[in-house]
Design a protein around this nucleic acid. Sequence first.
DNA 1: AAAGATGCCTGGTAGC
DNA 2: TGCTACCAGGCATCTT
Length: 301
Amino acid sequence: MPELPEVETTCRALRLNILHQTITKINVYEPNLRWPVPENLANLLLGKQFLDISRRAKYLLLKTDIGTLLIHLGLTGKLLVLPSKTPLHFHERIRVNFATQKSLCYIDQRKFGAFLWVEAEFYPLAAPTGFKSVMEDGILNNYALNHPLLKNIGPEPLVAAFNATYLYKRAASHKIPVKQFLLDSKNVAGVGNIYASEALFGAKINPFKAASSLTFADCENLVIAIQKVLEAAIFKGGTTIRDFASGADERGYFQTELKVYGRTGKPCYACKTPIVEIRLGQRSTFYCPCCQPDVTIVSHQ
DNA sequence: AAAGATGCCTGGTAGC
DNA sequence: TGCTACCAGGCATCTT
């Protein structure tokens, strides 16, 4: 499933491959994604160019002069840039053809993704607090978009606004386990199930620990761990960008570096203790009971 | 008002 | 072999 690093890698690949190319044809083979694909999508996009491509959480924002195409990859979505003559993929739902004889192919087996349209009148807006650094860092290229799906999303994990001070303050009012806290995009954008477990391992924090009981030091460690694991995955994804053009992108980016996710019963890389799998908020959660001890306070008389 | 819990969408796969 | 349960991300909706 595409996590934030995959979406970011896709974003960068699209930027390299399809910016400023005139759209010549749009085929919608399956209009019933998570929400219906706008019926007039082809009319809207014909003759247009994508002038800017950015990411917010796990959403891709492809901007034209009249509006923005908002894409979410869902569970199984994939965007590939292929030669226009490439035969239709079995699970291909949408294809956007360019004058350059390239095509943007949206392949999504389970149709959980989304292709939505946001009129230009809803942007640009002043960047919300904390997002200016995105551009400054040169890591991401976000801009504000006034859309209901985006407006309640918390800070991007890789920007300066996401720091221990923010996290400590935010977590203080949330009594749920920190694992679930991290999965709520209102708290931090785009941290999915895999990276939540991985980051907690990196920070040596038990996933059951109440968010509100995190110490400031916990938050410092957690911010660093989240950023480290995401950046490492993005770096890895970056080395596979060429695959987007060849269509040979079948590898996934995170299979190599996972330390706890999916490693139930296997020895912890740090201490050899078997990794434990539990359910937390209907989600698989993995941790090392030795490296991430449950720190429930036991009172002694 | 804000936090937390639950349900839903699809389709492949594991287990029987 | 054919059936059911389960799982995934994240939004909508309901409850507290």
